[in-house]
Amino acid sequence: MTGAAPMLEVAGISSFYGWARILFDLSLSVGRGEVAVLLGRNGAGKSTTLKSIVGLVRPSGGSVAFQGTEIAGMPPHRIVRMGLGYVPEERRIFTDLTVAENLEVGRQRPRADAPEWSVDKLFALFPNLAEMQGRPAGRMSGGEQQMLCVARTLMGNPSLILLDEPSEGLAPVIVDQMAATIGELKSRGLSILLSEQNLRFARMVSDRAYIIEKGRIRWQGSMDDLESDEAVKQQYLVV
């Protein structure tokens, strides 16, 4: 029915915190099965963009279409139930709950148009988690928590997931694992939009990039184009 529409189409949204304007007429899109990355430095508006898409921040003006359906202004739980998963920057796992219970909170009914996950399938993808099902999530390492956070979102059987700075604060070895996981998810047909400041990580996982600065998209193009455009890298990313 909505086969022709892109997975996500954000058109001209603006967002505010109180009276401070964070986003300015921001537009971007994510195609089916694509991994897009939103690159920018701290405070550029990456997190706000993702929060505006999932409904945690209410965009004022503009439109957010998910698989052809307008979702701007809906409460987060309704957006998420349509198959849009969100992994926050600060992880926000439920530290008092066990690993299994954390997954249970994320569980939703399967959807015809998205890969279906179960606890067993997730434990196959994240073998570490299987070993600590009964452990309170607060007693896991940062890297394990990040994996749990992704797994918890997958329990909702999403067709698109938003990952807010998945590599932040992780040891280099764990960052490599994270990149492998994203590749695996993509190969199973998930569409992904992630935000990053780590260009090296973005390079490993994404097809296409948007560069955001001061709440505006400044540049967009394929990862390869970005790779060859030294001027853009110098101006916005300072590698």
Partner: peptide, 8 residues
């Protein structure tokens, strides 16, 4: 330097 852009 957590949370800062590489240049900064």
């Amino acid at each position: 330097t957590a949370g800062m852009a590489p240049g900064e």
